[in-house]
C-alpha cells in the first residue's frame, strides 16, 4: 500500500499541495483526478522523491523511500525518461544494466504488443510510439507499484486504445497503480478508486464500484457534484 499523509508543497508563494492524504492499494488502479496545475504530477514526484515536500509523509508498504525502493516502485512521467538518441534496444539495455527488477521477456512481449521495432531511434518515433516506449520501460520492471502521469494525454486514439488494453492485461494485474488524468471518460470502467483533488486538498476519495452500487452515480456524476456543487 502507498500511504500519502498530509503532503504540503509550496512553489514560491503558491501553495500547490495543502495537506493531501490518500492511500493506494496493491492490486488496484487508483486515479488522481483534477484540472491541470492542481498538483497531481507533484504528488507523484513527491512519492518518488523527485521533488522535496515542505511537509508530510509517504510510506510504501509501511516504509520510507530509499534507493532500494526504486526496485519496487516506478514512475512513468508524461515525457520519455530516456536519451532521445538511443534506440529502443539501447534504452532497454540501459534498464537491464541497472535494475534487478527488469524483466526482459516481458519487455519483448511489450515490444510486440505495442508493435515497436527495437532498432528504431527514440527521437524518430511518433508521439504515440514514444509514449508506448516510455510505458514499456516502466511496465517491464517487475515492480509492485506503478505511477503513471497522464498516460492518455496528447496521443492518437489507437495508441490510447492500446494503452488502455495494458490496464486490463496481466501487465498491470496484481500491481498497485496510480494514474493521473484530467480526462476520465475513456477509463471510467478501468479504475478501482478515485481521488478528486482541488486547491491542494483531496475533495473526495471513493471506490468506483461502491459509488455505482450504493448511490448509482458515475465518476463524472460525483465530479459534477463535488466541483460544481
Amino acid at each position: 500500500m502507498i500511504e500519502v499523509k498530509e503532503l504540503k508543497k509550496k512553489f514560491g508563494r503558491k501553495q500547490i499541495l495543502n495537506g493531501v492524504s490518500f492511500t493506494a492499494n496493491k492490486g488496484e488502479i487508483t486515479c488522481l483526478i483534477g484540472i491541470n496545475g492542481v498538483g497531481k504530477t507533484t504528488i507523484l514526484k513527491g512519492i518518488m522523491n523527485l521533488t522535496p515536500m515542505n511537509s508530510g509523509q509517504i510510506f510504501i508498504d509501511g516504509k520510507n523511500l530509499s534507493k532500494d525502493t526504486y526496485e519496487k516502485i516506478t514512475f512513468i512521467p508524461d515525457a520519455i525518461t530516456m536519451i532521445p538518441t538511443m534506440t529502443i534496444a539501447q534504452a532497454m539495455q540501459f534498464m537491464q544494466d541497472y535494475y534487478k527488477s527488469w524483466n526482459q521477456s516481458r519487455a519483448t512481449e511489450l515490444l510486440s504488443f505495442f508493435r515497436l521495432k527495437q532498432e528504431d531511434k527514440i527521437s524518430s518515433l511518433s508521439k504515440g510510439n514514444t509514449a508506448k516506449v516510455n510505458l514499456l520501460l516502466g511496465l517491464a520492471l517487475d515492480v509492485d507499484y506503478l505511477l503513471m502521469d497522464e498516460p492518455f494525454s496528447g496521443i492518437d486514439i489507437f495508441s490510447r486504445e492500446q494503452i488502455a488494453n495494458v490496464f486490463t492485461s496481466h501487465l498491470v494485474e496484481d500491481r498497485g497503480v496510480i494514474i493521473t488524468t484530467h480526462e476520465i471518460n475513456d477509463i471510467e470502467h478501468l479504475i478501482d478508486k478515485v481521488v478528486l483533488l482541488d486547491n491542494g486538498i483531496v475533495l473526495k476519495e471513493f471506490s468506483t464500484e461502491e459509488m455505482r452500487e450504493d448511490e448509482g452515480k458515475s465518476v463524472v456524476d460525483v465530479m459534477r457534484e463535488v466541483y460544481q456543487g
Binding site: M48, N49, L50, K67, D68, T69, Y70, E71, T74, F75, P77, A79, I80, T81, M82, I83, P84, F94, Y98, Y99, K100
Partner: peptide, 16 residues
Amino acid sequence: GKNTFIYRLFMLPTAR
C-alpha cells in the same frame, strides 16, 4: 528542454 533523463538517473536503484 523536453529531456527528462534526470528522472531516470534519480530513480536508479543506487545512491544518487
